[in-house]
């Protein structure tokens, strides 16, 4: 049990520190101008990486499963300009349906 609490304490402290890097060290000031271009591209780069890792990421392997059908449904919903709620539900329902029949 002590081991668990040590991990909780250290991981918690590390996470708090990582999330605080920007707000505590640079908070309340505009970023240096030459960083503007870099930071504005961080969102597309990281969002794309999140899509990829959440879609096919496994434990050091690419896992192709029902999530692909879910994301295809989400993409279709996006093409039809569906609201976010519909997009997310479409992905979950399609994925659940594929898993239910396979």
């Amino acid at each position: 049990m002590t081991e668990v609490w040590i991990v909780i304490g250290v991981v918690g402290a590390a996470t708090v520190a990582l999330k605080s890097v920007g707000p505590v060290l640079l908070g309340g000031r505009p970023l240096p101008e030459h960083l503007d271009g870099v930071v504005s591209l961080l969102a597309p780069a990281v969002l794309a990486a999140l899509v990829v890792t959440q879609l096919v990421g496994g434990d050091r392997e690419i896992v192709l499963d029902a999530r692909l059908v879910g994301l295809a449904s989400a993409a279709l919903a996006l093409l039809l300009r569906a609201p976010l709620l519909v997009v997310v539900i479409a992905a979950a329902v399609a994925t659940a349906a594929v898993r239910a029949v396979s």
Partner: peptide, 12 residues
């Protein structure tokens, strides 16, 4: 299918 909700959110 909730694990597919996350990539869908990020794609949207």
């Amino acid at each position: 299918g909730l694990d597919a909700a996350f990539p869908a959110l990020f794609l949207a």
